[in-house]
């Protein structure tokens, strides 16, 4: 599969169809994967594919990365889950479908964090998203590398995130509040969650707007709570549960819980799941005459 990927990348660069291939390569010690930007067909052997390819590279398609955009038309190595983010970027007019070549990777799942890898992909080191994945055969791709996956996601979603959400849902509002205040209090305002997220593409984030200061920038419980709640709201109906924010968080805030909970709320309210149809707009950013307005009493 790695060879198919490299071959395809070579073709694309040689023909000039794309100017850069955004993919995964090894670090120096070949123990971790890291994003690589291949611009020369001779370098395509640097591309790798394995269960350590956790990063959602779609972030590099956003306007946060002007240096990468300046290279020219990109091809991107993307898992189905990553392609869901690309679909949202297209639907939100951040990128045109024809301006990116998607190399979809048929996927058997990846590790939750690269540090967990011990040579074998076992279910207990895979993130919840992989256990429920319905895009192992990537959609929306220009080219698919790998065989169709023999995997059907369970009817009822399984995994730690869903278990924890059920647990939290069974608690009283004050207990839930206490849980989140405690979790968010650890936040160090490094903004890794925002920077790693391809759907956080604003050039000026609300936390950087200070006239007025919407969010206190101090990493005290008050500022942390407002930052995390506002980010959750800005992702509602858009987040695809790719899990990058939780993976990037240096203080292990369970951001997957927040985001998956909001996904469930949006599914119930609007019967919408983001990232499957690049022509469908996320419900929170459109007005439709058919919108349910039962909250207006």
């Amino acid at each position: 599969m790695e060879n198919i990927l490299r071959q395809k990348a070579k073709e694309l660069l040689s023909s000039g169809e794309v100017k850069v291939v955004i993919g995964y390569g090894w670090n120096r010690a070949k123990t971790r994967t890291t994003p690589v930007f291949i611009t020369d067909a001779a370098d395509t052997d640097q591309l790798v594919w394995n269960p350590l390819c956790v990063n959602n590279l779609s972030v590099y398609l956003t306007r946060k990365f002007k240096d990468i955009q300046a290279l020219g038309k990109p091809a991107i190595v993307a898992k189905g889950c990553d392609i869901r983010n690309i679909a949202v970027l297209i639907s939100e007019a951040q990128i045109k479908r024809e301006d990116v070549y998607i190399i979809g990777m048929a996927c058997q799942g990846v590790v939750y964090k690269q540090e967990l890898w011990q040579g074998e992909l076992k279910p207990n080191i895979m993130p919840t998203k992989c256990h429920n994945c319905d895009v192992r055969d990537p959609h929306l791709s220009d080219f698919v590398a790998g065989e169709k996956a023999d995997f059907t996601p369970p009817e009822e979603p399984v995994g730690m995130v869903f278990d924890k959400i059920r647990d939290l849902d069974s608690k009283s509002p004050s207990e839930r509040w206490a849980f989140w205040v405690k979790e968010f209090s650890r936040c160090i305002k490094c903004y890794a969650c925002r920077q790693v997220c391809s759907l956080c593409y604003c050039e000026r984030c609300i936390t950087e707007k200070n006239m007025p200061q919407w969010i206190e920038t101090s990493a005290h419980p008050r500022g942390n709570l407002s930052w995390n709640l506002i980010r959750a709201m800005h992702l509602t109906g858009r987040c695809t549960f790719c899990g990058e924010c939780e993976r990037a968080c240096p203080v292990n805030i369970p951001l997957n819980l927040v985001n998956q909970k909001m996904i469930m709320v949006v599914k119930d309210a609007f019967d919408f799941k983001s990232g499957y149809d690049e022509k469908a707009h996320p419900p929170m950013i459109v007005f439709s005459p058919d919108d349910k307005e039962n909250f207006i009493k």
Partner: peptide, 12 residues
């Protein structure tokens, strides 16, 4: 080029 511009490295 791959740096995403978060402050995690500087904070730890």
């Amino acid at each position: 080029m791959k740096c995403i511009g978060c402050g995690a490295c500087t904070f730890v």
